[in-house]
């Protein structure tokens, strides 16, 4: 048996790795992974923000219902959430939902639950005096939140957000379970077809995941520096 590695399998399938069957078929591979990640990232940013604010609502019903939602989701494996979405979403919507959107919704719901706790902690980290100063000048509570507390809190939240998003980028790989042809799924297909290059293929996608996550971390570190106000 040949002990050497043959990475030519990667080059022979490079477009399939990057864009799947596109443009002759559905988008796949790395492009689809990024597509899932970016959309779920944006949606769960707002989802987390909304859930986090509901968590600290003065209305007890709103507060405890939203806390229950957060705790239920955090108590479930992501794979479970994806299955739930896969079977329940069509029933709720009354029509079929594409696998990609099923996964996006599952990732959004799952990540929002975690993000909400970051938002909550970020808001709590702003001294009470900031809110009091805003309120005493006649600003409405929502204005105090939007103009005073959140701008300061969000900066404190950036590192935790980045952690959450990086782990979400990696979680997109679970989409293969419902047949979404993102990077991991494409790799499995190629591996099944070529049979003898699993090491090369899975080493390659590991490197790709690392590059995506590292690029994202670097970008956010740059953003953090840009946003840092003089301390």
């Amino acid at each position: 048996m040949d002990a050497g590695f043959d990475f030519s399998v990667i080059w022979r399938n490079i477009t399939y790795f990057f864009i799947g069957r596109f443009p002759h078929g559905a988008l796949g591979g790395i492009a689809l992974t990024l597509y899932l990640a970016v959309i779920a990232c944006v949606l769960s940013f707002f989802g987390g923000l909304i859930l986090g604010m509901l968590n600290i609502s003065h209305n007890r019903v709103v507060k405890y219902v939203s806390l229950a939602v957060v705790n239920i989701i955090r108590g479930m494996p992501l794979l479970m959430v994806i299955f739930w979405m896969y079977f329940l979403l069509p029933a709720f919507m009354g029509k079929t939902v594409s696998e990609s959107w099923t996964v996006i919704m599952a990732l959004t719901l799952f990540t929002s639950a975690y993000m909400s706790q970051i938002v909550k902690a970020g808001i709590d980290s702003i001294p009470r005096g900031q809110t009091e100063a805003g309120l005493s000048s006649g600003l409405y509570p929502w204005q105090v939140m939007v103009y005073i507390v959140l701008p300061q809190g969000l900066r404190n939240m950036i590192p935790s957000f980045v952690n959450q998003f990086v782990s979400m980028i990696k979680d997109t790989s679970l989409a293969f379970i419902v047949g979404v042809s993102e990077l991991t799924h494409v790799a499995t297909q190629i591996n099944n077809r070529t049979i003898i290059y699993p090491t090369e293929i899975f080493f390659f996608i590991a490197v790709i995941y690392f590059i995506i996550c590292y690029a994202f971390t670097s970008l956010s570190r740059w953003l953090e520096r840009r946003l840092a106000w003089r301390r």
Binding site: A133, L135, S136, L139, R155, R231
Partner: peptide, 20 residues
């Protein structure tokens, strides 16, 4: 209460200026 608060200025021990 917001209308009233607009008519009352308050100065705090810890200043509470908005750092951002």
């Amino acid at each position: 209460i917001n209308r009233l608060r607009a008519e009352i200025g308050m100065v705090f021990q810890q200043f509470n200026l908005y750092p951002h």
